[in-house]
Simulated scan of single mutants.
Amino acid sequence: MKVLILCTGNSCRSQMAHGFLQSFDKRIQVESAGTEASGKLNRKAVKAMAEIGLDISGHTSDSVEKYLNDEWDYVITVCGGANESCPAFIGKVKNRLHMGYDDPSHAVGTDEFIWSEFERVRDEIKEGFWKLYENDIKPQLG
């Protein structure tokens, strides 16, 4: 089972989703990428995942170009708000899904508020990807 998680910058939401899905089942090959990959991970996203025991600090922020020639069981976009355009993936894909989440790196306000946004989005991603795993992916793995 091969899953590609896409967003724009590949520094925050897609990285968290990647970390969660990989932690649910090691049989799944998970990659994440961005249409405008930042080349680095968002430090707060790494910290938010570490806070719940998942280390994503070794992930890389990659361009979607790296994966266009591969075949995928799932390609999942995680971009959120109305101002954000979701990337399109033109490679070979069995299932295309969109699971939109707010981008906590765009949160404005106090440090406490911004941190609470990272935690909120992290928890929403965990819940959404757990449901996807339980209802769709796990049954296919047998």
Score class of each variant (00 low, 15 high):
Val46Arg: 15
Gly91Ser: 01
Thr77Tyr: 01
Ile28Lys: 14
Val75Phe: 06
Glu119Lys: 15
Val93Pro: 05
Gly109Arg: 07
Val108Gln: 15
Ala45Arg: 12
Gln15Tyr: 09
His98Ile: 01
Ser38His: 04
Glu65Lys: 10
Leu97Arg: 14
Ser14Glu: 11
Gly39Trp: 00
Ile125Tyr: 06
Ala88Asn: 05
Asn69Glu: 15
Gly80Lys: 15
Ile28Gly: 05
Glu117Phe: 03
Ala45Tyr: 01
Ala107Gln: 13
Leu141Asn: 11
Ala82Thr: 10
Ala50Lys: 15
Glu65Arg: 11
Cys12Trp: 12
Lys126Ala: 12
Phe24Glu: 06
Gln140Arg: 15
Glu112Pro: 02
Ala45Cys: 07
Cys12Gly: 10
Ser85Gly: 00
Ser85Lys: 13
Glu36Leu: 09
Asp136Pro: 03
Trp115Ala: 09
Ser105His: 06
Gly39Ser: 12
Thr8Phe: 00
Trp115Gln: 11
Gly58Cys: 06
Thr8Asn: 00
Lys40His: 11
Val121Trp: 09
Asn69Tyr: 05
Phe20Leu: 08
Lys44Asp: 10
Glu134Lys: 15
Tyr101Ala: 06
Met99Gln: 09
Met49Thr: 11
Glu51Met: 04
Ser14Ala: 05
Ser32Arg: 03
His18Cys: 06
Lys94His: 11
Val3Ala: 14
Leu54Asn: 08
Glu117Pro: 01
Leu97Asn: 05
Cys86Pro: 01
Glu36Phe: 00
Pro104Ile: 13
Ser105Arg: 13
Lys92Gln: 11
Glu112Cys: 00
Gly142Thr: 04
Tyr67Ile: 09
Thr60Cys: 02
Leu21Ile: 05
Gly128Lys: 15
Glu71Ser: 15
Phe118Glu: 01
Leu132His: 14
Trp72Pro: 07
Lys66Met: 10
Cys86Arg: 13
Lys47Thr: 12
Pro139Met: 07
Asp73Glu: 14
Asp102Thr: 10
Glu71Asn: 14
Leu68Ile: 15
Met1Asp: 08
Val64Ser: 02
Val64Ala: 08
Asn83Met: 08
Lys26Asp: 09
Pro87Ser: 11
Met99Asp: 00
Leu6His: 08
Ile90Asp: 09
Pro139Thr: 10
Ser105Gln: 07
Gln140Leu: 15
Phe20Lys: 10
Ser14Thr: 01
Gly53Tyr: 04
Asp70Ser: 13
Leu54Phe: 10
His18Leu: 09
Val30Trp: 12
Gly9Lys: 14
Gly80Phe: 01
Thr110Phe: 07
Gln29Met: 12
Leu41Asp: 01
Met49Glu: 03
Thr77Asp: 02
Leu4Cys: 11
Ser116Val: 04
Thr8His: 04
Asn95Leu: 02
